[in-house]
């Protein structure tokens, strides 16, 4: 079984800051399912680089404003 990815994220925080955008709406905006957004927020899945860029572009912030390395 894979270990929990060492990547942290602020997706939930940013989503709530953007007019309480729903998980489904964010998923639709970047081309993944709502369940994948839930898994990303819970730290159970690290998105592909493309999806990571798409998420940061939806929120209008840089990649490192959304994702970080655990322990940094």
């Amino acid at each position: 079984m894979a270990k929990r990815p060492p990547i942290t994220n602020r997706v939930k925080e940013l989503r709530e800051a953007h007019g309480a955008m729903s998980q489904a709406a964010l998923g639709e905006a970047i081309g993944v399912t709502r369940q994948t957004i839930i898994a990303i927020e819970q730290g159970r899945y690290s998105p592909s680089l493309e999806s990571a860029f798409r998420i940061s572009r939806v929120f209008g912030v840089g990649l490192e404003d959304v994702f970080g390395w655990a322990g940094d």
């Binding site: 081309g31 993944v32 399912t33 994948t36 898994a39 899945y45 998105p47 999806s51």
Partner: peptide, 11 residues
Amino acid sequence: SEADDMMDERD
């Protein structure tokens, strides 16, 4: 609503 969900990258 989820019946026509395509497989995304995680799937």
